[in-house]
């Protein structure tokens, strides 16, 4: 007996100047599930994320979130309804202290309804969130200018921004890229815990070994089309996937 899916993506397409970046991709997601999106560079993963989160308007197709059609809605509305995302090319608000970066999501209409999103609580909530994503407590890092943060920290700041919104779905676009092995290792338990708390996770990732520790299902994109879907083991077993992606990956490594 299946539940109502929390997110339903149907036949989503987008082309840029004649190139089909995403071509008829669809999938469903149950609440609390963890989904990985993998594929070679330029296979349309980031565009798919942008289409779901409203940063790019699709040419055709539908995105249904909890039974509501959110196709092509402005990004902030989609965030407000409960889908938060991180960016592959993460950039902080470089002219302000790190913890002040989190005031922005905490000031949003969604976060203001939460505990800790009220005026006067926000600074403390921000520090707490930073600690949660692995900024050392009592260190001076949260008070430094965000522009001076190393890349791995900026990524974690992105994750903290998602958490600040207390969303139902978190979409992480290559969170691990630019992180060291040990940084990834320290983030993995957090992701598992977030998932256990009932949040649905979608992760776009290149580092499959780490990804497969978190997700229980994956879809594979190539040239904007979905070429496989299933558990990590099933996906890796598909010959087409090996040809398109994993083959070249092993050659590189």
């Amino acid at each position: 007996m299946k539940q109502q899916p929390i997110l339903k993506v149907a036949d989503l397409s987008k082309s840029f100047g004649g190139v089909h970046a995403v071509n008829g991709v669809g999938f469903e997601l149950q609440p609390g599930e963890t989904l990985g999106i993998i594929g070679p560079n330029g296979s349309g993963k980031s565009t798919l994320i942008n289409l779901i989160t409203g940063f790019v308007k699709p040419d055709s197709g539908k995105v249904i979130f909890r039974g509501q059609d959110i196709t092509g809605a402005p990004p902030f509305k989609i965030v407000t309804s409960g889908i938060a995302r991180s960016f592959q090319m993460a950039r902080s608000f470089s002219s302000m202290p790190v913890y002040k970066n989190l005031i922005v999501p905490l000031y949003s209409a969604r976060a203001r309804k939460l505990k800790g999103g009220q005026y006067g609580d926000r600074d403390e909530t921000a520090i707490h969130l930073l600690e949660e994503v692995g900024f050392e407590r009592d260190s001076s890092v949260p008070y430094k200018l965000a522009g001076s943060l190393p890349h791995g920290y900026v990524k974690r700041l992105e994750l903290a921004r998602c958490l600040a919104l207390d969303p139902e779905i978190i979409i992480l676009d290559e969170l691990f890229s630019g992180m060291s092995m040990s940084e990834v290792a320290s983030i993995l338990p957090l992701l598992e815990r977030i998932n256990e708390e009932g949040k649905t996770l979608i992760m776009v990732e290149h580092r499959l070994r780490e990804l497969f520790r978190v997700v229980n299902r994956a879809i594979v994109l190539n040239f904007g089309t979905k070429i496989a879907e299933g558990t990590p083991e099933e996906v890796v077993a598909v010959q087409e996937v090996r040809d398109a992606y994993l083959g070249s990956e092993t050659e590189d490594a």
């Binding site: 002040k100 005031i103 921004r161």
Partner: peptide
């Protein structure tokens, strides 16, 4: 103020502000 902070954040990086659930 926090409001002013949001305004300055828009100058820094409007995309992240929008992703923070704010109508830029």
């Amino acid at each position: 103020t926090d409001y002013g902070l949001v305004l300055r954040a828009i100058r820094d990086n409007d995309r992240s502000v929008e992703a923070g659930g704010i109508n830029v």
